[in-house]
Simulated scan of single mutants.
Amino acid sequence: MVKRDLTGLCPYVTSQKVLSGKWSIYLLYLLQEGPVRFNELQRKMPEDITHTTLSRQLKALEWEGLIVRQEFSQIPPRVEYSLSEIGMKFETVLEALGDWGSEYIEFVKNKDTIKK
């Protein structure tokens, strides 16, 4: 049986593919507040992340059209990242994910308490 690539056809498969990077959702969350510089993003990450990994993840999100990279011609060079128009529409999804994540954390805490 031949499997079809549903990217671009199914909204769930498409969303999963666009957001497949380990840090995609968290980076979109960090950019909700407005433009952020590269080093500031790196400092705000919950785990150590290499320059290369962060750069790749940002390039992927930029390629997907979810973020915008703006270069300022100055010395030293300055680059800021912000949400694109379609990226801003993801904010309601982030809010829902945050709510669900909080509920799930409570679920896990209660589950662990019941087991003890």
Rank of each mutant, 00 (worst) to 15 (best):
Met1Glu: 11
Met1Tyr: 05
Lys3Gln: 13
Arg4Gln: 15
Asp5Thr: 08
Asp5Arg: 07
Asp5Cys: 02
Thr7Cys: 15
Thr7Asn: 04
Gly8Ile: 10
Gly8Ser: 01
Leu9Thr: 13
Leu9Met: 15
Tyr12Lys: 14
Val13Arg: 12
Gln16Met: 04
Val18Tyr: 11
Ser20His: 14
Gly21His: 00
Lys22Tyr: 08
Lys22Ala: 08
Trp23Leu: 04
Ser24Thr: 02
Ser24Ala: 01
Ile25Met: 13
Leu27His: 07
Leu27Gln: 06
Leu27Glu: 03
Leu28Gln: 10
Leu30Lys: 13
Leu31Ala: 02
Leu31Gln: 14
Glu33Cys: 02
Glu33Arg: 03
Gly34Tyr: 03
Val36Cys: 02
Phe38Glu: 00
Glu40Arg: 03
Glu40Gln: 08
Arg43Thr: 01
Lys44Ala: 15
Met45Lys: 02
Met45Glu: 06
Pro46Ile: 06
Ile49Ala: 01
Ile49Ser: 01
His51Asp: 09
Thr53Gln: 02
Leu54Met: 06
Ser55Asp: 01
Arg56Val: 12
Gln57Tyr: 01
Gln57Glu: 04
Gln57Lys: 14
Lys59Gly: 03
Lys59Thr: 13
Lys59Trp: 08
Lys59Asp: 08
Ala60Gln: 07
Trp63Val: 08
Trp63Pro: 05
Glu64Trp: 11
Gly65Ser: 05
Gly65Phe: 15
Val68Ile: 12
Val68Tyr: 01
Glu71Thr: 10
Glu71Cys: 15
Ser73Gly: 12
Gln74Lys: 12
Gln74His: 05
Ile75Glu: 05
Pro76Tyr: 05
Pro76Ala: 03
Tyr81Ala: 00
Ser82Ala: 03
Ser84His: 05
Glu85His: 13
Ile86Gln: 11
Gly87Arg: 05
Gly87Asp: 00
Lys89Met: 15
Lys89Leu: 10
Glu91Cys: 07
Glu91Asp: 05
Thr92Cys: 13
Val93Pro: 14
Val93Lys: 09
Val93Asp: 14
Val93Ala: 10
Val93Gln: 15
Glu95Trp: 08
Glu95Gly: 05
Asp99Cys: 08
Asp99Met: 10
Trp100Glu: 04
Ser102Pro: 09
Glu103Met: 07
Glu103Ser: 06
Ile105Thr: 12
Glu106His: 11
Phe107Pro: 13
Lys111His: 14
Asp112Cys: 07
Lys116Leu: 14
